[in-house]
């Protein structure tokens, strides 16, 4: 545990960047994912197609490729550092999976809910926001939880582009101290500090909503 003491501030900095990247990507991918899920269930054909192309592109390319594309190619046009490139890549990649999850959730809601709302005078957007989406998210919650946990772990992609995250700092510590094994054990524990509470919180939310329904 001497390693942890000696490099504590390094680990903590990495932890901070991982947390920041995860939170930004989580919020961003939820918003984007929900947007593209709705596009795919709209009656307008071209919107469905655009939504579907987006999902297929970002779901079917490795996260590493998206990250490198942003860091090496896009960064030449729009200045950005490794942290930004990695976080944007993580957001785009995860949003494709969230779009699929939310879309499945929307489709699981009985069509009578939308019909009842429209007949009651609500606009499509209002019916989505107040009636369909809350029910869709409830259905989608277990798989959304999986996506969130994957997102936190996938944020380790930042290490490849100098993103200063937990994985990046773990590599540094391992290289400097030559104590590779302990360094990565500590990195693993730091990830658990993020993912375990998250996964318990998702479980709690699931139970809580089930009790309410």
């Amino acid at each position: 545990m001497g390693l942890l003491q000696n490099y504590f501030s390094t680990f903590l900095q990495g932890f901070g960047y991982t947390l920041l990247s995860s939170v930004v990507a989580l919020v961003g991918s939820m918003l984007l994912g929900t947007l593209f899920a709705i596009m795919q269930v709209l009656p307008t054909r071209w919107m469905q197609i655009v939504g579907n192309i987006y999902v297929q592109i970002f779901r079917n390319i490795p996260l590493l490729i998206i990250t490198l594309f942003l860091y090496l190619a896009v960064a030449k046009v729009v200045k950005m550092n490794g942290f930004t490139a990695g976080t944007i890549a993580l957001t785009l990649y995860t949003s494709a999976f969230i779009a699929e999850t939310v879309r499945a959730g929307i489709l699981s809601v009985d069509s009578g809910q939308m019909e009842g709302a429209r007949a009651n005078g609500l606009k499509f957007g209002q019916a989505m926001r107040y009636i369909v989406l809350p029910q869709a998210f409830r259905v989608a919650l277990p798989s959304l939880g999986n996506q969130f946990i994957n997102l936190v772990k996938n944020s380790s992609i930042l290490a490849f582009v100098g993103g200063l995250d937990l994985m990046y700092q773990g590599n540094m510590v391992a290289a400097n101290s030559f104590d590779t094994f302990t360094a990565y054990i500590i990195v693993g524990i730091f990830y658990l500090v993020l993912t375990l509470p998250l996964s318990y919180y998702m479980q709690y939310l699931e139970q809580h909503l089930k009790a309410k329904a």
Binding site: Q113, E115, A119, N120
Partner: peptide, 18 residues
């Protein structure tokens, strides 16, 4: 039109989350 024309369905279609 829907503001002025209400509808009652066979399967109720109440908002399940409200």
């Amino acid at each position: 039109i829907r503001k002025n024309v209400g509808m009652v369905f066979q399967h109720f279609n109440l908002y399940n989350n409200k």
